[in-house]
C-alpha cells in the first residue's frame, strides 16, 4: 500500500502579517516555515496507513531547494521517500493549474519507473493560497476518484471509506483504490517528529525533478492586507457584576425566548 502525500511549504505566521515591498508575498524574515495543518494530518494519515498495511510513504512538494525542510519534517514523522519538484529560485509561487500539472507529470514519471501509488493525499486547501483545487485537478488528470474535505479515512482491500462533514452530520463515501483524498485538520492528531526520526531524515536527499511550468489562468497581481475594522468594544463592566448587562443584550437580540 503506497501513499503519496503532497505538501506545501508556507510561512508560519503570527497575529499580523507584513508583506514584502513588492506585495507579492508575505515577509517571512521573522517566520519559520511549515506545512499547513491539513497537510500535517495528511502525512500522519499516510504514516498510519503505512504502519498498518506495510508500504511506503512518499512525500512530494513543489518549491525551491529549501522546501526540502518540509520534506524532511515529513520524513521525521515517518515518511519514507521524498520528491522535490524543484523550481528556480524566486519562482515557487505557481498557480493551481501549473502546480497540478507538474505533480501529474511527476506521478506519471514514477509510474513509468514502476512506482505507482494506491493512495494520494492532499490538504483540502493550502494554508496560504487556499485554492481548493490542486488535489482535484490531479485526480481528474489521472482519472482517479477524489473525495475532498476528508476527516475520516479507513482502508481495506483496495477500497477506502472516507468521511466528511456535511448535512449536519457525516457524509460517507466509498471508493476503490487508487484514489485521491484531500483531507482536513481533525482527521487525526499528527505526531511530532521524534529525535531518531529527525536524525534519520537529516542527511537524506530528495529525489529532485525539474518541473515544467504550464499555463495558469489565474494571474496574481498583488497581495494586500485587509483593513480590519477596528472596533472600540463597549465595556459592559468588570467581573461577574456585569452579567445582567449581557442578559439585557441577549434579550434585545431575542435570544431569551
Amino acid at each position: 500500500m503506497n501513499t503519496l502525500v503532497c505538501v506545501k511549504r508556507v510561512p508560519a505566521t503570527g497575529a499580523r502579517v507584513t508583506l514584502t515591498p513588492d506585495e507579492q508575498a508575505i515577509d517571512a524574515r521573522y517566520l519559520s516555515f511549515a506545512v499547513g495543518p491539513h497537510e500535517e494530518c495528511a502525512i500522519e494519515a499516510a504514516v498510519q496507513i503505512a504502519e498498518e498495511y506495510d508500504g511506503d510513504v512518499t512525500v512530494l512538494t513543489l518549491g525551491e531547494a529549501d522546501a526540502v525542510e518540509q520534506l524532511r519534517y515529513a520524513l521525521a514523522m515517518g515518511a519514507h521517500e521524498m520528491i522535490l519538484l524543484e523550481t528556480e529560485d524566486g519562482d515557487s509561487d505557481w498557480g493551481p493549474m501549473a502546480t497540478a500539472g507538474a505533480i501529474v507529470d511527476a506521478i506519471r514519471q514514477k509510474e513509468a519507473e514502476g512506482d505507482a501509488f494506491d493512495i494520494l493525499l492532499f490538504g483540502n486547501d493550502s494554508a496560504d493560497a487556499g485554492g481548493f483545487q490542486v488535489g482535484v485537478r490531479v485526480a481528474y488528470a489521472l482519472g482517479l476518484p477524489v473525495v475532498t474535505g476528508v476527516k475520516g479515512l479507513e482502508i481495506s482491500d483496495g477500497h477506502a471509506t472516507a468521511r466528511r462533514e456535511g448535512g449536519g452530520g457525516w457524509e460517507v463515501y466509498e471508493v476503490d483504490l487508487p484514489a485521491v483524498f484531500t483531507v482536513k485538520e481533525g482527521l487525526n492528531l499528527p505526531r511530532y517528529p521524534s529525535i531518531p526520526g529527525k536524525l534519520r531524515a537529516r542527511r537524506r536527499k530528495p529525489e529532485t525533478i525539474a518541473p515544467n511550468r504550464g499555463e495558469d489562468g489565474l494571474e496574481k497581481i498583488r497581495l494586500k492586507v485587509p483593513e480590519t475594522e477596528k472596533k472600540q468594544a463597549q465595556i459592559l463592566g468588570h467581573g461577574p457584576e456585569a452579567a445582567p448587562k449581557v442578559a439585557d443584550i441577549l434579550e434585545e437580540l431575542g435570544l431569551l425566548s
Binding site: A12, T13, G14, A15, R16, V17, T18, R29, Y30, L31, S32, F33, E69, I195, P196, K198, L199, R202
Partner: peptide, 28 residues
C-alpha cells in the same frame, strides 16, 4: 520582530534546525 509579527513571542524566533542537528545525536 514586534509582538504582532512574531509567531510565538518576539524573543522566540524560528528554530534553525541545521544548527541543532549535531546536538540531537549527543543528547540521544
Amino acid at each position: 520582530p514586534s509582538i504582532e509579527e512574531a509567531r510565538l513571542s518576539p524573543t522566540e524566533l524560528p528554530f534553525t534546525e541545521e544548527d541543532f542537528d549535531p546536538q540531537l545525536e549527543q543528547a540521544l
